[in-house]
Design a binder for these strands. Sequence first.
RNA 1: AGAUCCGUAGCUCAGCCUGGUUAGAGCACUACACUGAUAAUGUAGGGGUCUCCGGUUCAAAUCCGGACGGGUCUACCA
Length: 983
Amino acid sequence: MSGKYTEYQQLNLPSISEEILAKWKNENTFEKSVTLREGFPPFVFYEGPPSANGMPGIHHVISRTLKDLVCRYKTMQGFQVKRKGGWDTHGLPIELGVEKELGITKEDIGVKISVEDYNKKCREVVMRFKDKWDDITQKMGYWVDLNNPYVTFENNYVETLWWCLSELYKKGYLYESVSIQPYSPAAGTGLSSHELNQPGTYKDVKDTSAVAMFRASLNPSKGGTSEHPTFSKIFSAITESKVSPKGGDLEGAEVFFMAWTTTPWTLPSNLGLTVGPNIDYVLVQTFNPYTHLPINVILAKALVSKYFKAEGENGDFENYAADVKLIPWKIVAEFKGKELEGMGYEQLLPSEANTLEKIQEITPGAQPFKVVLGDFVTTEDGTGIVHTAPAFGADDFKVGQKNNLGILTLVDKQGKFTEGVGEFSNRYVKNYKDEKDYVDVNIDIAVKLKLENRAFKVEKYEHNYPHCWRTDKPIIYYPLDAWFIKTTAVKDRMVELNKTINWKPANTGTGRFGNWLENMVDWNLSRSRFWGTPLPIWKTEDGEEELCIGSIEELNNEIKKAAEVLGGETNKHYLHEGILDLHKPYVDEITLVSPSGKPMQRVPDLIDVWFDSGAMPYAQWHFPFENKESFKESFPADFIAEGVDQTRGWFYTLHALAVLLFDSVAYKTVVSNGLVLDKNGQKMSKRLGNVVDPFATINSFGADATRWYLITNASPWDSLKFDEEGIKEVQRRFFGTLYNTYQFFALYANVDGFAFKETYIPVKDRPEIDQWILSSLNTLIKDVQDNFDAYEPTQAGRAIEDFVNAHLSNWYVRLCRRRFWKGEYEHDKICAYQTLYECLETLCKLMAPVAPFFADWLFSNLNNVSGRFSNESVHHTDFPKANEAVIDIDLEKRMQLAQDISSLILSLRKNNKKVNLKVRQPLQKVFIPALDSTMAERILKVADIIKAETNIKEVEILSADNDFIQKKQKPTLRRWVKNWGVK
RNA sequence: AGAUCCGUAGCUCAGCCUGGUUAGAGCACUACACUGAUAAUGUAGGGGUCUCCGGUUCAAAUCCGGACGGGUCUACCA
């Protein structure tokens, strides 16, 4: 305890941060804040693991500020808040980084570099920016235990993941199936629905779209059916048509189904055309705009106007020529979609690879190239006839199976055409490799169709198309074998339990998350990559028998068993020491034995990294192999917080696994914070160069001002327009004012030797203004506590700001200055010191969760002299509790009245029409009209303050019925109506 | 295309749920005061068609409907 309060030259927030940071380090302030609460009720917080593979950004600072302030607040409220940090270490981002660095592609792995070396490299790279993360964590004042973090690639962690998977397997929730899935040729892996739902995956792109013409056919050898009632209807319609175009009649002219596609590369794999059963279709006679040949086309009636100009209807067929702009057309027949069912058509782009024989080789008995019915067809886009390639669309696949169309996959997993697709073979369907001279194969397909009289319209079409969240390349839908978790089995329970979760803001839970749950599909776990958690399932070659491993012990037993049963070289490297690393390639070298004695190999898949983080409540404790107690105490979490982009990421996987495994929520409260935009409301992106560097920001403004700004400027869930000017304002307006208030206090307290050694003077014995500020202070405590409890830190922060500026500095200190410098060191002066001291001391605690450095600094400055607390840090103290006895609402109202009246008088002095009565000029008397006696009383009680503030000698109250003021009411009609209405 | 949030002063935001003084605050701007918080502090002023159009009501920034603009999200759009 020193005798004097430290006085400073000027406020320097960054240096305060440094000073306090050093103190925390020396005194283990964080660790103590946890251990000091040993035996207190726990408040459970889960840290969402960041990936140290990328640099931290300002958006990390906001979500971590949010997490930190809640944890600090709860600690001060008497909870023990353990915060185990963690690192997300698996997954695509890391693999892609390594590929880029090594200059290889996915195909090279296992060829140019062994899987072993590749994974070794991944393991190295994973913690690349750990230093930067540790640095920002410290500098921003984020308290989290990074000494014992969970790391998702460690064996213990993976073992728990295996345990989770085997539990799911036992419950029948883990299954394998072929389905059409989003697939990223660029990344070489399928994607789960929540990966596809990452922000920014859907982008507006311009693609070559084509309306292709499929020629209706009677020739069964080309795939058509020979008999169909609608054919005769069509032909008689054509015959009856009176139209007789140049060069002969249209009878015998070709009849086409028009179908639109934005992905021409799927056309060679076409196996059907789907129409809506109840949609009206028409047969139109016209000319092909490219070849100018007479044609008959079928399309949905509702979409005719999209392709034909109204003026051309029943136009001049006889004089049509290539140079005639207006193409004549005529509707000659009409039918329902179901009448078209079963009609055959000629293949659009025949090649070696898609002959009927080839198709039936793949799917025996398949009957492709016919019109089928589907409910999903609409007439909003296209032609009302949907080109159907079962391999490349979920609906297509379904409708293909139902109608036995077969399945053709003429594109390989790298995204290029397979052999046998004529001139298109081996060409990439999209520019996945960033080839400089890439020629869009879709355009070539469209050109070919044009030349062959098989295209009606080719144009660039802008639409929203999903892209891979890591490579930014367009995905395709592709048939894949994959393992799924049957989340749909517990959908209702997930919906039900979600209703018990406290979502901030609420509508994210009911709306965004709730809707997502309602439309849930099974979780696609499979990833065909190398660096990740292997799926612990071994299968016999015939696929008849399989085994799901749930622990290292079980695996080691199976390894030995297989060696005994199968003999020879089986598992010879794994017999002595057992398994040491649960990653590829080691797990793949292990052969297990089935109950019937057949060898089993591991299925090659890895699992979705989101499973890693979703299983974090269990895996961080290596449950159930260790720490059963720790797990029990820390599940479910009381609180988690991340960016709103995690709604379908971490928030979802946590919830899904908790419900699947434990029929429980994983978290009771979740706060999702919004995006951080630049000051113009633009999304931050490296490309635009508007990314804010959190290091630079914190270095120049200090962590406290940055945190305060992030929290008070907008509610966490609103998107924040980040502007440095805002931080400067916080620095000046709030921290500057509070600092000055302290400086003022220190200056005089040092002179008078005030160290809070005198007994606490009862508030009721202090002057009214002291009672007032203390009443306001206690009201503030209530307000702040309520807001923190409701996870509304923005409101809490603004309330503190308001108190400091409007009440403490601008009114209390200003009005009381004389009390500090005049007179003897006795009752009134001590009252003033005690009051101001209490305000400052309480403010330290109230603001400590948000501005931890400044709060601790101010607390130390005060407490080092007074020694009122034995705590080393403000973060070890208890949060203030409001003293209701001190709160006097009437007094607060009175003072508000005094402020308002003073302001009004000052305004009158200045705006007097005749003369500007400066404050310096004393005035004799002011008349203040009061509405009622209560108001009059209140005014009288604060009359002294008003007199002093306005430099007036007397205050006289005028009652409502006085005749001093002559009220001349000449209301305008509008005002009258507005205020009193019309009878 | 749908869902959802948002639109108030030059800027950042309150107010709206629960309709009723002259629609508020801070920053910025202008003028002034203080000179014992002074590289501080205070006071006053200018500045608003509360996005627009309808409706309900005696009365609408506030409630209802629609349009426009912006953000976010969803989607098997072929």
